[in-house]
Nucleic acid binder design. Sequence first.
DNA 1: GTGAAAGCGCTAACAG
DNA 2: CTGTTAGCGCTTTCAC
Lengths: 354, 354
Amino acid sequence: MRETSGGGKRPTVKDVAAAAGVSAPTVSRVLAGNYPVAPATRAKVLRAMKDLDYVVNAHARGLAGATTKTVAFVVDDVTGPFYAYIARGVEQQAASEGRLCLLCTTHGDPEREFAVVELMREQRAEAVILVGGAWDNEVYKERMAYFAKALDKSGSHLVLCGRPSLGEGVPALVVQYDNVGGSYGMTAHLLSAGHRVICYLGREVGLSTSDERIEGFRRAHADHGVELDERLILPGRFQIDDGYALTKRLLAERDDVTAIFAGTDMVAIGVLKALREKGIRVPEDMSVVGFDDIPIAAELTPALTTVHVPHEQLGREAVRLALRRSEGAATDRIVLGTHIVVRDSVAPPRRQRS
Amino acid sequence: MRETSGGGKRPTVKDVAAAAGVSAPTVSRVLAGNYPVAPATRAKVLRAMKDLDYVVNAHARGLAGATTKTVAFVVDDVTGPFYAYIARGVEQQAASEGRLCLLCTTHGDPEREFAVVELMREQRAEAVILVGGAWDNEVYKERMAYFAKALDKSGSHLVLCGRPSLGEGVPALVVQYDNVGGSYGMTAHLLSAGHRVICYLGREVGLSTSDERIEGFRRAHADHGVELDERLILPGRFQIDDGYALTKRLLAERDDVTAIFAGTDMVAIGVLKALREKGIRVPEDMSVVGFDDIPIAAELTPALTTVHVPHEQLGREAVRLALRRSEGAATDRIVLGTHIVVRDSVAPPRRQRS
DNA sequence: GTGAAAGCGCTAACAG
DNA sequence: CTGTTAGCGCTTTCAC
């Protein structure tokens, strides 16, 4: 680890080869380690590398054919806990398989998502992982299918993580979690507790995740023979503020609701805040549940009953699936389970109790 | 956007050149756009690129001399809100300057941090941004200084974001925020409210961030002529669980504490939980403050009084500084201010009030 | 304006 | 086991 006084340029394999009195390929071989090299020469080469403070040039390596060792993941926004935990899974698995992570954000803009995928094509990432809900329209699906094919053609993989498949024949891998089931289970839980007027708060129109959660909500009502007032499904984004504002409005508009199913835990935080301000106790006066089971959910007052989503595992599986696929595995779809976590934010409805 | 039926290989500049009836350099020139090309030829080339669905190979480009257009940022863990918000700033600024982001995590392990910086050297990232507190010991500083020099020599920049300089003469950029000032201000706030026995909860020994916050805590006490009982500074990590466990222990050990200064907002969440379980009201029976001002802080019960840190701006400035520096700017250090945000978790101590 | 030639740093065939 | 010879895809000189 001696200081090299050298000029501005970095040493190359050639320099190392010269210093060690061998040829460039030999240096390359000790670098790769997957080829027999005499212990003596190997030592000399290693020595020279240390002396020159040599580091390979990843780009040259990538060009020359050796694989890129890079996976890309693209999310809406890193600060959302949902994405953050998936990102952690992705990063961990990638690191443990010797891959680097490229991170891109789209801020919910499909145009930017396309642009980003194109960039990843330039980077020749081994896998491009698209995280979170997708836009459920044909134009979008077709364009993305195009990218899936393009990536596939150049030996790369598109992974849809937490979003639905692009259809038969599109070369994309899917790592899903059971939105419908989780939502169904939670709704059934509320229904079983005696609630009959449940508000679903935070429907992002056209977003696959949201649509699936609402489907579970609907099905549970149907299976329990409870008629669902469509006006109880309130549109809104998946943020704290939306939960807050929508709850305020809901409270102003009707007083028969006994439970609120928030589209995400973040939404639920806003709901709880609004209720607290109005002096409405949870769960005595109103039951509140969320979706995601982000760590904060357990720390809220009251601790939030919610649907657990295996975020980290989702991220990990996305990377594994893509890398295994490159090695010839046939699996192209994984669905992880979800389950409800009962804490303190649900009670039977008020009127039934008194 | 027509489908190209081609084999498994990607089209290259040569292919495009052939299809357009020009030479490879010409294609390169329209790609770069920074060189005069006849409108007619440019059109032909553009056309050919579309037809072949051509995308440049970022590695080949990187090799041939054009800059890498990549910044790396390395954090402890993406799921920590502190890091997540800085990450968002970094990513946004990078994207807006046409750069890609490489994300690496270290899980608080210095060894891994060194390994990661080495990897970034291979990648030839334009900037390597190290985020969050650093280990305040000489061996660490020396090794990192070595990397700073190595990066500098190859035209790249090391940026220390939210951590102290490595010393004079080390070619590293620094983007800091005022830990000492924020902590001082908050402590003064508590002292002014009448608190005399304040517990500082969550000291990560040897971590620069933690040390600085405690320094502010000390100074404020000194300036206000209040003697500080060293046993009131409790060691612990910056997590929810630590806040919870330490508070439990604190409560069991002494009953003269009237305010708790949590090392971070996350720690404060744990503190609030423990107090709630014990039936201790905040702020009536105990004042609680945090550090960071993560968005959740405003949603807690009660809303948390805390020190605001400009996370996103920190990330953005880190990228800007590095990129400007490459363009010849002289600045190598930026310090952003912090300030306290008063919400509902502080009140005068109980005994004074009654 | 555009083409021809050369080379970025590395690895993958082949020989020997 | 190791050296020689090519070539990855792109961008640069430098001529024309």
